[in-house]
Amino acid sequence: MSRYENFDYPGLNLGGGHGETHDAAKTTVFGFWVFLMSDAIIFGLVFATYVASVHATAGGPGPKDLYDIKSVFIETMLLLWSSFTFGMASLALKYRHSTPRLIGWLLVTLALGLAFLGFETHDFLTMIAKGGSPERSGFTSAFFDLVPLHGLHVTAGCIWLLALLGQVARYGLDSRTKLGIMRLALFWHFLDIVWLAIFSVVYLAGLA
């Protein structure tokens, strides 16, 4: 038996010990990967719009006038740690640690996600106060298309997480809750990767 036993789809596999849930995940989780591919195209195109519009400031403020690297760095840390804590939640799910432990990790993840959204909203409001509102120029439009789109995804992730916590409270860790948590995990890590691209392409390149 190799170490790839039960490696039936990309990502953390539940393993044969989880019986029918593992089998169902072969289709469900694969389907979610395909959805993420499609979503990645959306982000890719919005990135392309941003890169093509970054100099279209129309006499208005540019990246150096608007970005605050300190705040963005804190956001990056919050999101990276939330990915780590979600990873711990996934391990708790796979190795059947106690349900409270799983819920605990999920709640920490939720708190980090909400903190990220709080900092990000503050960033946006500051930018608007500095005269960088979306209707100012092609550049600010592209910024407010790309970064809040990611924020909207994180918001959706938080709502999804709450809905799943409700399902755990009602049904315990049944097959459908497990599959939900596994897909949300993929979604959460995907958003982390997108954020790294935003951090590099938007903020680091913009301030360089």
């Binding site: 719009t49 979306p134 209707e135 550049f139």
Partner: peptide
Amino acid sequence: TVATAQLALDRYLGFHFFTNGFGGN
């Protein structure tokens, strides 16, 4: 999806993706 969403942002919220002025293209 991206094209129609950006056009909607232009029309509803005054963004400048495809407008003639303000850096739209």
